[in-house]
Amino acid sequence: MNVKVKDLFKKFENKIAVSGINFDIKENSTLGLLGPNGCGKTTTIGMILGLIKPSRGEIFIDGIDINKNDRIRLLEKINFASPYIELPKKLTVRQNLEIFARLYGVSDTENSIDQIANDLDLKKFINKKTGELSSGQKNRVSLAKSLINEPKLLLLDEPTASLDPDIGDFIRSYLEDYKRKKNVTILLASHNMSEVERLCDEVIMMKNGNLVDEGTCDQLIKKHGRSNLEETFLKIARGK
């Protein structure tokens, strides 16, 4: 799936959250969405998911405007994971995955769950209640939920936030491997610059609702005369 964002603008009462941004995500590529807290990343993701109605602008997914056409049809091929939203805690991992598999119209529910549980190493705790899991386990379950429908467009909001380096690396490796095997377009919002350098083909940088820079990681590092993406991010975020 490809995504085309045109003149996207969102104003909440008196606050401009996203200020007329334009960007494309090419099919089967990973775009990093970077920016300091409150810069409009989550609002942008919310608008791509159709959860937030833009004040102005258009979002085309495979040429279809998500706000003007059958959003449900598009959502069958899209998914989202974020550590800030959770799955019902009182349900087991398997129950949660079964519900979402059915909601996404996955045909062979049992096999799909077994497959993804195997891939993401969930088998040891698949019959445990989700609320009883560690944050690392929860993140893997959240990722499993987001992949249950084999999405063509995957939106990830800080997928490795607050994880220890081992589990963070496991998820990054899994995403790299998953992208190689499946045709998936990824939008990754992250504050982990090494993660972005590792996973993203291109990045866009937002600040105060505006898109302030874009390019590959190497291009941005070079353009701003820094040695890595973290320093580049700090330069852009601090404006010096």
Partner: peptide, 18 residues
């Protein structure tokens, strides 16, 4: 309310359900 309490609200509204 269960959806709100369990913070599953967003998952529900981004799934392809009318």
């Amino acid at each position: 309310l269960e959806e709100i309490w369990s913070r599953n609200f967003t998952n529900l509204f981004i799934s392809p359900i009318k």
